[in-house]
Design a protein around this nucleic acid. Structure first.
Lengths: 344, 344
DNA sequence: CTGTTAGCGCGTTCAA
DNA sequence: TTGAACGCGCTAACAG
């Protein structure tokens, strides 16, 4: 309320302008703004900051970055063939975590969605505009590997989410899908389940494979029967159709494990509409529950993903690389949280 | 399969390097890469592109941007006090649309979440790093206006999402919340409803106000009784508590309009558990349905948001401003889609 | 058709 | 404690 509004003069204010207004050199202004050692006298300091305020000076990021030879930016690449590539809660959470960590350390986040047909023209790959890249990929293994190759070819440090890759400039951050799935399976076995369905998408996918392995290991050890049901695109329609077929062929299992919440909810809908009681006749569990599970009725037994934390960790690893030239850890597995509901 | 892998030499390759390898000047390389008028001979063109390929040259974005005096970047600012600022499907969709439009035109998207305590240190505000900014805000009106002021003070063109603001450098893109809400209300009135509850969050919020007005206008005209129920933070717990209190005080209405899907689903859960039949005894409707509605059982009557399209349009307006110095439209209202389900 | 010159805004290096 | 040159990588303008 005290001074006049520090309105930016239209058409950029440079260091030089500030220097002129303060009666010093641009170098002095730079020193003041960056809090350099060479102590500027309290007097000039005051004059400079006043001028900065009055002129509404904002440093020109491109100039500084060119000079410093660092972009002060992290790239986030999402490979997904559907244009709405932020539909996935997991992806969104990762990005939020990454973005916040970056901002906290003065880095910008450059977000880019990329379709497999698009890869060649992706700005993050075609130009030098970030100091490192974090990527989360979907699609076939071939498509994914093709992108990772393009990524590593840039020479930038790369962090892959929910994927494994063996390369010194690639860091892999995943959640403990296998462990979480095992825990779900053990929970069901402890409840006395002898025959399980596991709902899986048609497409092979590293994290999903890990979940399957976790379940399978427990089943083998416990002598429990495990039937895998391939549910096409994971959508409601495909899942219900696949489940119906499986029920026809194999009869009612003791429990159905959804490879993710979406398939689990679809299964629950199907069972309830078929007049099968959950969890009395069949238990149902999900995976990666975000808000979703809370809307299901009754509440879905699931495993909570540390997606936001994964994003944070990915960012931290990139920052560590920027400082020291190498990742603190090349393979990071974050724990998941088993969340019992009322469906199992 | 033909040539050696074009692997980037570690530690940047500049135009000069390419020029050297091709036996020309850096200027010629620049001309080739940017397809300039001054026709380079087919011969040199070939030599240059070969050198570019072989050395794995990637242009240095910062240098080009400094020279061109344009960031070739669009900023996306999300004001939200919760760190997981991408939890909201609406926001995510807007960002996806914006990001894709930007990429299609060679622009980068710089994403930044900002908390109200944080505003001063936000990179997008403190530096010149983008050519324009798109913002989506939550929180109190005071907080939101404070941010808009900071934004316009940068002198950059600004696009606000789901907000109104009167300033020639500000473009406002909203969806037709009022119209959508009216349609829902008319639908219920046509079904014979005489008494309505409308579920609203405690916090005032422009889009939510528009929905309320849309409903109110229809009710007034039709002589229908409308009772507003304030549901705190829109969460399940608050909503159920508020609804229970309202039912106690006013008895059963003919229909309950959720200000959004979340509150609607919470209401449905409450009714079903209380043994009230939906939609036989009470109809229920939502708003802004994304995937969510599909999981509810039975399917939720709601209004679909054109969020992705809003993002695209916001980007298009910024691009238009970059080209012509002004927005094509300063106030844009995108239509919503009424989506009847089985709950009303 | 190709090379030369100059400068975008900033920060490092040295000299005053 | 402060100032003057120089260059980061790139391109607009003009010269050859």
């Amino acid at each position: 309320m005290a001074t006049a509004p520090p309105r930016a003069v239209r058409g950029k204010v440079t260091l030089k302008d500030v220097a002129l207004a303060a009666g010093v050199t641009s170098m002095t202004v730079s020193n003041v703004l960056n809090g350099r050692q060479g102590q500027v006298s309290a007097d000039t300091h005051a004059r400079v900051t006043a001028a900065v305020e009055q002129l509404g000076y904002r440093p020109h990021a491109m100039a500084r970055r060119l000079r410093e030879q660092r972009s002060m930016a992290i790239g986030m690449l999402v490979l997904d063939d559907v244009p709405e590539f932020l539909n996935d809660h997991f992806t969104s959470q990762v990005i939020a975590g990454l973005s916040n960590i970056a901002a906290d350390h003065g880095y910008s986040l450059v977000l880019q969605g990329v379709r497999s047909s698009n890869v060649e023209s992706a700005g993050l790959l075609a130009q030098i505009e970030t100091d490192g890249v974090c990527a989360i990929l979907s699609g076939t293994q071939k498509q994914r590997h093709r992108l990772v190759d393009r990524l590593t070819a840039t020479g930038l440090p790369v962090v892959m989410i929910q994927e494994r890759y063996d390369d010194p400039t690639v860091c892999c951050v995943t959640q403990d899908d296998r462990g979480g799935a095992s825990e779900v399976a053990r929970h069901l076995v402890a409840k006395g389940a002898k025959r399980l369905f596991m709902l899986l998408p048609a497409e092979e996918w590293p994290a999903m494979n890990a979940r399957e392995q976790g379940v399978r290991a427990v089943c083998r050890k416990a002598g429990v029967d495990l039937i895998r049901v391939r549910c096409g695109d994971e959508g409601i329609t495909d899942t219900r159709a696949a489940l119906a077929a499986a029920l026809d062929e194999h009869g009612l299992p003791d429990a159905i494990l959804g490879g993710n919440d979406r398939m689990a909810v679809a299964a629950m809908m199907h069972l309830i509409e078929a007049g099968i009681r959950v969890p009395d006749q069949v238990r149902v569990t999900g995976f990666n529950g975000f808000e979703l599970g809370q809307f299901g009725l009754p509440k879905l037994t699931t495993v909570r993903s540390p997606a936001y934390h994964i994003g944070q960790r990915a960012g931290a690893e990139l920052l560590s690389y920027f400082q020291s030239g190498s990742f603190a850890d090349r393979e990071i597995v974050l724990p998941v949280e088993f969340s019992p509901g009322q469906t199992s």
